[in-house]
């Protein structure tokens, strides 16, 4: 796919989403308020009950920062309303139009996904600006410019991995009419094992070691830890390499599933 087309697809998708102005502001305000309340209520209670200053390597303000930033990162990694786009297009036959276009379907959808997260990036940035002044100082996190710069490639890799990982469950739609349950399951599993709900340092040691080699951690926890200055350069490079390796693995798994799936595709109706 030529770069101009890729950028054009991205831009069109962003423009489409930004045209829904009410939706843009409402989603941002409501989701931010809910997340701040949940994170604050949960962790202040945990720290108060335990009577400790440090839990799993985090102080209270540090883990509050993690809770807020992993939420903002997660919004970008998961993207907006295109999470089930491939499954929906297979189900309702809209895939047909892409099959006659002289361009790669997977790249087309990825370009649209990237365009789709632009409003999320904008929202997350605005939300971070709102929340930052109210964050207390922490001894366990260090939010600085280097961390912000290093988090950008981590975020991009996480987004790519989430997209490719999501393709196989979505392509089950070639065989089954409704794959919504698979999507919910994937969301739950990635949230829990990816550190979207709580830092993986709170998990038992053997599970942490295992998760370090699994793809989930690189979706949410890794880019957030990088942003909060908790990842050194060597660990950052290793993390990116593992994340990209999983991208390749899932891509290689996706290709035969796509080939077999399109053989079954009916385009809806006879």
């Amino acid at each position: 796919m030529n770069p101009a087309l890729f950028l054009h697809l991205m831009s069109i998708e962003s423009r489409r989403l930004l045209s829904y102005r009410v939706d843009f502001w409402l989603t941002m305000v409501v989701s931010l308020i809910v997340q701040v309340i949940v994170v604050w209520a949960l962790w202040t209670a945990v720290f108060a009950e335990s009577g400790r200053d440090i839990v799993g390597g985090w102080d209270l303000h540090g883990i509050l920062a993690y809770g807020i930033f992993v939420f903002l990162m997660g919004r970008i990694v998961r993207g907006g309303d295109l999470q089930m786009e491939v499954a929906t297009e297979i189900y309702d036959g809209s895939l047909s139009r892409y099959l006659i276009y002289p361009c790669n379907y997977g790249l087309t959808k990825y370009a649209q996904q990237l365009g789709n997260i632009f409003p999320d990036i904008l929202q997350s940035f605005l939300m971070a600006l709102i929340v930052l002044p109210f964050m207390g100082t922490s001894t366990t996190v260090d939010l600085n410019f280097t961390g912000i710069l290093m988090s950008l490639p981590s975020l991009l890799c996480a987004h790519l991995l989430f997209y490719i990982m999501g393709l196989i469950p979505q392509m089950v739609a070639f065989w089954a009419d409704n794959v919504w349950s698979l999507s919910v399951m994937m969301r739950m599993v990635t949230m829990l094992l990816g550190g979207g709900a709580l830092p993986l340092s709170l998990f038992p040691e053997p599970l942490q070691t295992l998760l370090a080699w699994m793809p989930f951690r690189y979706l949410f926890e890794f880019p957030t830890l990088v942003l909060l200055g908790k990842v050194g350069l060597e660990e950052w490079i290793t993390g990116l390499a593992i994340c990209l390796a999983w991208c390749v693995v899932f891509l290689l798994l996706t290709i035969p599933v796509w080939r077999r799936g399109t053989l079954r595709y009916t385009g809806v109706g006879i």
Partner: peptide
């Protein structure tokens, strides 16, 4: 090219001009 009278193939939320511009890129 394929035209399906019963199934819209253009992008629902975009004006025609944007759809055609995108097709220009797709078909080079």
């Amino acid at each position: 090219s394929l035209i399906m009278g019963q199934k819209a193939q253009l992008w629902w939320d975009l004006p025609g001009a944007d759809c055609f511009e995108l097709l220009r890129e797709i078909y080079q």
